[in-house]
Amino acid sequence: MTVFACATCDAVLSTPLSQVALPAHARQTWGHGLLPVLMEAGSYAVDPEPFGPPWRSWNEVDEDEAAARGVFAPVDSLPFGDPGTIVVAPGDTRGTVLIPERCDGYCCGLDGRDGPNLACEHCGQPVATRIDDCSLWQAVRFAPRAVRRIPTGDPAPQAADWQALATEVHPTPPVGPSGAWSPQWAAAAGVALAHLLAASDGTPVTVPDGLAAETLRRTLDTLLPQEPPAKTAALAGPGLLTPGPALDILLVPQHPRTGEAWQPSSSARTVPLPADVWTHLAFHQERLPVPAAGGLPAGVIRDDPLPMHPWSVFRPDWGVFLYTLARLPAVRQPWLRRIYDRVKDHPYARPF
């Protein structure tokens, strides 16, 4: 376990935390209301990409410089803050105070546009950026050069091996109590679609029937040509049968602690999915309730409460999709760059 302390005065700034993978929806902007906390209590993640000001527009950045920073297609602006911010839940911070002159936001809270807005309560040095504005996942990001790590001596939770993943990861339902699609699923689909397009080489891609088709097929059919032959994609990972050699693309889980994608023994290309989303796709079987006298037979679910069903068609998060695709070198191929430009110019057009 790790505690983060002020690099200037050594004051403790967090509770004991264990490291996990950065969530796929870490940079998501969703809806118009207040979103929950990004990180689970007791955990932290390291964002390898630059974060925060100063900001430079695309016209101010040379393409080679952008590529060196891992961006291969035009974006509105690039952050030139330090990479490696430490992302934690706001409730896991200790000994920090707001910096009033840096508390700007768009609507209902703070969005971090002015840089670090939290200072060490003991010495007054800026140490972190709190984000809690509407449409943004609530989080605190410690500036990597403003804090230092102190091992507590307590062992961190052991990372589950791949075979235990299906039993230890709690699946995230695709639909919430309101009947709206989960923003986590929209973000996961945005990431997966960017990788699926890159793996398609510009040819059609077929995905399994069911929830995978409901969340991915419509977008793939819209963005890719439909002339055969098509590449075949399927779910693969721990607890599933070994995929056959005829599969071209495999949808695989990312480990929730390390962020590493599960690697198959075949030569098929892999597309990562967050473990909580992949687990639901791989193992959740929703069966229609059937009348039964006496006790319910094996395999029949109760009809109270009814399973949640969405009230609208699924739309992947176009912002997460563009963010991911801009950072894949494959986007420099003319056919894929055309798709990127099309979605960027018309983000609310079908299928987004």
Rank of each mutant, 00 (worst) to 15 (best):
F4D: 08
A5T: 01
C6K: 09
A7T: 01
A11Q: 09
T15W: 11
T15L: 07
S18G: 05
P23Y: 11
A24H: 04
A24Y: 00
A26R: 06
W30N: 08
H32N: 06
H32Y: 11
P36T: 13
P36D: 14
L38K: 12
D47A: 08
G52A: 12
P54M: 15
P54L: 13
P54E: 12
S57G: 15
S57R: 10
D62Q: 15
D62I: 13
E65A: 15
A67S: 11
A68T: 08
A68C: 11
G70D: 07
G70K: 14
F72I: 01
L78C: 05
G81S: 15
G84S: 04
A89F: 13
A89T: 13
R94W: 07
T96N: 10
T96K: 11
V97E: 08
I99R: 04
C103T: 13
G105C: 02
L110K: 09
D111K: 03
D111A: 10
G115R: 06
G115M: 12
P116V: 12
C120G: 12
H122P: 08
H122G: 06
C123L: 11
G124R: 14
V127M: 10
A128K: 13
R130T: 12
D132I: 03
S135Y: 03
L136G: 12
Q138R: 14
A139V: 14
F142L: 02
A143H: 15
A146P: 04
R149T: 13
I150D: 10
I150N: 02
T152K: 13
D154C: 09
P155Q: 05
Q158W: 08
A159T: 01
A164H: 13
A166R: 09
V169R: 07
V169G: 08
H170N: 15
P171G: 02
P173Y: 11
P173R: 13
P177L: 13
W181S: 01
A186M: 13
A186F: 05
A189K: 00
G190Y: 08
L193E: 00
H195T: 01
A198P: 01
T206H: 07
D209M: 06
A212S: 15
A213E: 09
L224E: 07
A233I: 08
A234P: 11
L235Q: 02
P238H: 07
L240H: 04
G244H: 02
I249G: 07
I249C: 03
L251T: 00
V252A: 00
P253R: 00
P256L: 00
P256I: 00
T258V: 07
G259R: 10
W262H: 04
W262N: 02
P264C: 11
P264E: 08
P264Q: 10
P274V: 00
P274F: 00
A275K: 00
D276W: 06
V277K: 03
H280R: 06
H284D: 15
P289Y: 03
P289N: 06
P291D: 06
P297Y: 01
P297V: 01
P297I: 01
L306V: 12
F314H: 12
T324L: 09
L325I: 05
L328V: 03
L328H: 10
A330F: 05
V331W: 01
R337E: 04
V343T: 01
Y348I: 01
A349H: 09
F352C: 03
